[in-house]
Each structure stands twice: as structure tokens, then as C-alpha cells.
């Protein structure tokens, strides 16, 4: 049973004031090894909560996740995570950050150096490997985060708005890099994003989540990720179906946001 099985997950947060928030309700999904899935949804619909449960940082109140057959009970090197920003270790150089996983596993430099150097090449940071993290731009920092995750060779990569803080141009380059890495490494990738275009470009599968309680609203299977590998992403965006899907999903999310607003005004 390879792949990631998300089985009827619910998550309720009990707040200190006695009330509780139903962040996720009965979410089920199956991902095969090597699938690329993007997740969209208005903020507060439980995307981060879902990812944290998959990573093992949170235990769901109901349901379970199974990874290659075994139940997920905590964080593990088989499930790597790339955060939006600020999760790098500033006290280490770029290379020390990238080699963190292998070093913690007790590997000797001779065992991981080649791979680390290769990954630094892939993300284009070979010349910067001795630099400190705070000397890098935001885009470079996210490439370090990607390389650090890959150096640990996880089966699943979980990304929570990894490109959210980047400028448009850098973001586009990074999207190309994510697609390339996905194809070359065959990792299972789940990517949360706020951008509908990014979700369309970086998802063989795309799920749209709805809030209160957080649940899966709609799922798509899309051709764009395959089209985009090694190609010009701007060309992919000109695909007629791309525009159609974008409008459809935008108005879907727009309706949800309107509903949230309305409910807030009513209360």
C-alpha cells in the first residue's frame, strides 16, 4: 500500500473560552506515490491544519493518516515540510542548512556531501553555499528550504504557501523549479497556495476547500502540470482550458468569501 491515505480526518480546536472551532470535518483523500496536488481555499478553511496533521505536528480529533501502510503518529523524515518563510536556521550557513537532515541522522560528510552539492547545483546556489542565511534574498532562501527538504530524501513533501512571500518574477521561476524537481525526483507533493494560477500550474490534482467546517469542496484533475514541465509557464497559461478553470475556481472562492463576510455581518 504505497502512497498517502487520509481517512475521515476531523479536527476540532477547543478554545480557552470554552467554545471550539471545527477546523476540519471528515476529510478523506488518497494520494499515490509521485502525485502533485495543490490545495486552494479561503483563509481559515483549515489548509494549514490539514498539512500539520499530515506532517504529524497535530493529532486529528478523529480519523487517521496512513503513509505507505503505517499510521502517522508524529513527524518523520519520510514527510518533509517547506514553510512560507522563517523556518531556516540563521545560525547555519546555506550548506549546513541543506545538510541538516543527513547530519542529524548521523551521516558522515563523505556520505552526504555529493548529494548536498548536487542539490545546491539544482537550486542554483552553489556559489552561495558558504553564505549566511540572512545574506540571501527571499527567493534564494526558499530555494535553500527546498534543497534542505530534498537532501533528506522524503517520500512526501508538504508545502504551506512556500512561494507566498515572493515577488511575481521570482515566484514564476520557483514554480518552474518545483515542477522540474517533481518530475525528476518523483516525490509526492502537496502544495497549499493562495494563488489560483499557481494552484492550476502546480497541481495534477487540485482540491478546493470550503470553510466552517473545513472540508473538501471540489476536486479537479488537470493537465497543466505535465504541460508545464520544462516549458514556458506563460504559454501554459494561454491554454484555453486554463482561463476557463481559473474563472470557475475564482468565482467559487469568491462566493465562499462572500458567504463568510455575510455571516460575519449577520452575527
Amino acid at each position: 500500500m504505497s502512497g498517502l491515505h487520509i481517512e475521515n480526518i476531523s479536527m476540532r480546536f477547543d478554545l480557552p473560552n470554552g467554545s471550539s472551532v471545527q477546523a476540519l470535518k471528515d476529510v478523506s483523500l488518497e494520494l499515490k506515490q509521485g502525485e502533485l496536488m495543490s490545495v486552494l481555499g479561503p483563509s481559515g478553511c483549515g489548509k494549514t491544519t490539514l498539512l500539520n496533521i499530515l506532517a504529524g505536528f497535530l493529532a486529528p480529533t478523529e480519523g487517521q493518516t496512513r503513509m505507505n501502510g503505517h499510521v502517522v503518529t508524529g513527524p518523520d523524515a519520510e514527510r518533509g515540510m517547506v514553510f512560507q518563510q522563517g523556518a531556516l536556521f540563521e545560525w547555519m550557513s546555506v550548506r549546513e542548512n541543506v545538510s541538516f537532515g543527513p547530519r542529524m541522522a548521523g551521516q558522515k560528510p563523505s556520505q552526504y556531501m555529493d548529494n548536498v552539492d548536487h542539490l545546491l547545483d539544482v537550486v542554483g546556489l552553489q556559489e552561495f553555499k558558504e553564505k549566511a542565511i540572512y545574506e540571501l534574498s527571499g527567493g534564494m532562501q526558499q530555494r535553500v528550504a527546498l534543497a534542505r527538504c530534498l537532501a533528506n530524501d522524503p517520500d512526501v513533501i508538504l508545502m504551506d504557501e512556500p512561494l507566498g512571500a515572493l515577488d511575481a518574477l521570482t515566484r514564476e521561476k520557483m514554480q518552474g523549479l518545483v515542477l522540474k524537481l517533481w518530475k525528476e525526483t518523483g516525490k509526492t507533493i502537496i502544495l497549499i497556495t493562495h494563488s489560483v494560477e499557481e494552484a492550476l500550474l502546480l497541481g495534477e490534482r487540485l482540491i478546493v476547500m470550503a470553510p466552517r467546517p473545513g472540508r473538501i469542496h471540489k476536486e479537479y484533475r488537470l493537465p497543466f502540470a505535465d504541460l508545464g514541465v520544462g516549458a514556458d509557464l506563460r504559454e501554459v497559461k494561454k491554454h484555453p482550458e486554463f482561463g476557463e478553470r481559473r474563472e470557475e475556481i475564482l468565482s467559487m472562492i469568491w462566493d465562499m468569501e462572500e458567504e463568510i463576510m455575510g455571516r460575519q455581518e449577520a452575527s
Partner: peptide, 24 residues
């Protein structure tokens, strides 16, 4: 997120103490 990142990179509690919490 730094602690989470270290956990999902396979670090143990002590390693997180030594390599993340203290330097941080």
C-alpha cells in the same frame, strides 16, 4: 516552524535542543 522543520528533517528532541533551541 523552525522546530517543526527540524522534527520533519528527522531531528530528535535533544538534537533540536542542541541545534535549534540553544542557538536560537
Amino acid at each position: 516552524s523552525k522546530v517543526h522543520a527540524a522534527y520533519s528533517l528527522g531531528a530528535s528532541k535533544w538534537q533540536i535542543m542542541r541545534h535549534v533551541i540553544i542557538p536560537n
